[in-house]
Design a binder for these strands. Sequence first.
DNA 1: TATGAATGAGTGTTCATTCAT
DNA 2: AATGAATGAACACTCATTCAT
Lengths: 188, 188, 188, 188
Amino acid sequence: MKERILKAAEEVFSEKGYYNTKVYQIAEAAGVSVGTIYRFYESKEELYADVIKTKLKELEKKVVRAIRGKEPEEALRVYIETVVDFFEDERNFFELFMREVGSLVIPNEERLNLSEWYDRYTSKLSKIIEDGIRKGIFKNLHPRAVILIISGALKNLLYASVKGFINLEPEDIKDTLIEIVERGILKA
Amino acid sequence: MKERILKAAEEVFSEKGYYNTKVYQIAEAAGVSVGTIYRFYESKEELYADVIKTKLKELEKKVVRAIRGKEPEEALRVYIETVVDFFEDERNFFELFMREVGSLVIPNEERLNLSEWYDRYTSKLSKIIEDGIRKGIFKNLHPRAVILIISGALKNLLYASVKGFINLEPEDIKDTLIEIVERGILKA
Amino acid sequence: MKERILKAAEEVFSEKGYYNTKVYQIAEAAGVSVGTIYRFYESKEELYADVIKTKLKELEKKVVRAIRGKEPEEALRVYIETVVDFFEDERNFFELFMREVGSLVIPNEERLNLSEWYDRYTSKLSKIIEDGIRKGIFKNLHPRAVILIISGALKNLLYASVKGFINLEPEDIKDTLIEIVERGILKA
Amino acid sequence: MKERILKAAEEVFSEKGYYNTKVYQIAEAAGVSVGTIYRFYESKEELYADVIKTKLKELEKKVVRAIRGKEPEEALRVYIETVVDFFEDERNFFELFMREVGSLVIPNEERLNLSEWYDRYTSKLSKIIEDGIRKGIFKNLHPRAVILIISGALKNLLYASVKGFINLEPEDIKDTLIEIVERGILKA
DNA sequence: TATGAATGAGTGTTCATTCAT
DNA sequence: AATGAATGAACACTCATTCAT
């Protein structure tokens, strides 16, 4: 039941955004009554937070599992691949995500506490770069800056692809990004 | 008058977001009456759109002027520098921008028509890459993909810097990004 | 079972009033499920009515028994004493009663039909006065007016005492009221 | 405008009670929109409080003015007369009053702060009794108890009269109450 | 032209009541 | 009989927009 509501909420929030989603629309989409939603969530806001956090934890888990034990170069690749694949599978959520990470839309954003999640998540990823630097594989660049560059690039590429601004297959997205990150765009 | 309203709107929208901004708050901030706002704008939404479009055109103009006549490598650098500087000067708007580009929040987003702007803007920038490829300076990568990577990376770096996730000076942001884009992160 | 529900309802209604009492709170207080309450009562309103009527009948029975066979002067005293004692013992209900008698709070008050009860109750009490007049003990005053004066005075005194507006022991309440009713406040 | 709303609120609240009165009904009765009510009052509750307090202050003012400078016996008479006359003129409000004084119906009753008003009001009236005792006109009875007896009796008599439980003219109400209070019911 | 009081449609949330188990 | 999860009608309050002055 809670499952059904969460799923429906994800769909409707994704399509319409937080403010244009009405609670009764989620209820309809979930095939339950409005009152039932309030059995599981204290407010629309709390439901929204749950939608986002559930998915982000899923993504984080997948990424962490994928990079575990890998050498830096390989880890960076699977990180990129995992994110692309995740959002390929989760188009709905991706749109929501684009609205939220780095751009909280709702009041009391502190209740969502996404900043904290994002901080932790990028910290874990930064370890890849730190490891690569230590091992002499990567240049001595600011680790978190590298991660922010990659994740920003990823978001933008995926968004453009979803919106039809660019005509690239997921595999091309991965390859292009990995190529640039690893070796840059200069021919020499 | 319209100027004052636009300025006030930018401030309030930036601070609170579209839905948490009340029209009377903009009126107060601008020192005019609510009715006066409606002399210049048909709706809150239209005012919002004007705020965004005005600034984006400003950015576009600055970028276009900066890259004009430059060789590809230099053009890419000044593009990055111009964007960083622009958003340094326009913190307010940057927050708004983060909420909007790639994540339209308002209903009838087609009325904002940011997609069209973004399409055109990235097209112009893609020319830099195309030019570089033609001249044998850049690898044969998907031009728009490269631009999307750079602009996504930029947004993320600036956002993290604004939010305090990362401690980097604007100059470091530029340098790191240029380094990675041009030469990648591998040491060899 | 019905007993337990009635008792719990009395407590919760007394504490919170009709509208601020939720049916599930009564269920909790009674240690039964909401559904069970609806086995015994068709609605919250009916339960409320039962709480009030049960107690009022109890009061009526006590008063009637106390005054039976007494001479008018004595009957008036024991009436006052019985009421004071009853509400001393039933603080909870007294608060409820203050909300209801003479001030029906719920819709369809005719369903509660307290007016009818009150009419009957005051009629019985008026007999004391009529009897006293007939026997030449009391002045020729409007019997029901006298009863209304006494019962209104009683309610007010008890209420003020419960609320702490006045610092009088139950015995003082009885004595003062009896003194005034019987002999007035003038010294002569 | 505020005047119109207050008047309409008094009528609707009186007829239906707090909880059964809908804000839109008050708006209709006042011939304004719902929004307009909220220009003058922050909430339904605040409007309710204003209705009650406005009238009670009016009553208090009339009573205070009427008893000023009078000798105790006369003061007591005009107090009773003033209250009866006031509620004769304010049938609507009287019903509301019966619901509230001594029986607060709304949540956060402290916001209404009627207790404080009632305390102050009865204090002023008690002065009449104290004065009479000092002058040797009244017996040495608890002054506030006497006032509570009189005001409770008054409320009950008026209520019964309004509800048709008793058939007494206002003048009879005054006379009967004054007679009993001053000289009691015993013939001797 | 500028004002800001008035409007009223729109919506998150509550809770008495029902009914499948 | 007893349960308590599910229902959905109801309502206070907000705020973008209008328009008389």
